[in-house]
Design a protein around this nucleic acid. Structure first.
Length: 276
DNA sequence: CGGCAAACCTGCGAGC
DNA sequence: TGCTCGCAGGTTTGCC
């Protein structure tokens, strides 16, 4: 599910429940996620106050009052359920349950268990092994055409595959890679290093625009994914190409419609006429 | 080093 | 109705 806009949406929802709140209990119900929890994870959260939440790429960061940060990745199917401590007991895929001093409950639910949680000292956050190699945040002013051009230089891979490389730019996943390339009018199979300066400029603008619009819409709700509040994001209704194989291209009148190809094992959607 | 397939794990929809 | 197959938003690993 979750690419940058979805993680941003989840982060904002969880912030409503956790910021300024004291954690009165933390429980790991299934320890075998993508990587093991740090030792004493639950005990180290207990009694701490959450001072702030932030996001880096597809990672959520819960800043604690003792100088440590809870790092969380939702994987493919991870969700954060926000509710009350006296709600129904945790279910099958509810792997971590956090309860707060105001009777709130935040549950990390992840059917596929590709997600993870870790603890890192705030001063070392950017040096954490999972964050250290990440590229720039696409919505930061520092993500410029010149920066992207430097990252794409000498890369022979298709531009769509390259956009999924989190060291090039952080937070783009399979949906928004296709959507950004459509907006920029770029064919997904183009070698990354072959893009002109003008094309890279258009791509940077397209990435920023599509991510910002998706965040404004509360992200995309595919399958069961939804905001912590239970509301559904609505950006999936605004997809121009993703998961729209055979349907009309919103940018032209070609009769072929949206095509689907496989690149590096993953589906790519595009319009062969509008994207060159 | 670059690039790709496979692996991790579960659920769901399509097709038979 | 029920089974099998293919596919799914991500990332890492290991092999050429």
């Amino acid at each position: 599910m979750p690419e940058l806009p979805e993680v941003e949406t989840v982060c904002r929802g969880v912030a409503q429940a956790l910021e300024g709140r004291k954690i009165v209990s933390a429980q790991i119900r299934r320890p075998d996620l993508r990587r093991p929890f740090p030792p004493d994870f639950a005990r180290r959260l207990s009694g701490r106050t959450v001072t702030a939440l932030s996001r880096r790429a597809k990672y959520m960061c819960w800043h604690l009052d003792d100088g440590w940060v809870v790092l969380c990745h939702l994987g493919m199917s991870g969700r954060m359920l926000v509710g009350r401590a006296d709600d129904a007991p945790p279910g099958k895929h509810d792997h971590v349950v956090i309860e707060t001093d105001d009777g709130g409950r935040v549950t990390f639910n992840d059917a596929r268990r590709f997600g993870l949680m870790d603890l890192v000292a705030a001063a070392d956050l950017e040096r954490h092994p999972l964050l250290a190699a990440l590229g720039p945040e696409p919505l930061d002013a520092a993500f410029t055409p010149a920066v992207l051009a430097a990252a794409l230089a000498a890369r022979k891979s298709p531009i769509k595959v390259t956009l999924l490389d989190q060291t090039v730019v952080a937070g783009i996943g399979n949906i928004y890679a296709s959507e950004a390339l459509f907006r920029a009018g770029l064919h997904p199979a183009r070698p990354a290093a072959g893009l002109s300066g003008a094309e890279i400029g258009a791509l940077v603008a397209a990435i920023k625009a599509v991510l910002a619009e998706a965040i404004a819409s509360g992200g995309s709700s595919l399958r069961e994914h939804r905001q912590p509040s239970g509301e559904l994001g609505c950006f999936q209704h605004a997809f121009a190409v993703y998961d729209r194989e055979g349907r009309p291209c919103p940018g032209c009148t070609c009769k072929e419609g949206i095509r689907r190809i496989t690149q590096a094992g993953r589906s790519t959607y595009y319009c062969d006429k509008r994207q060159v």
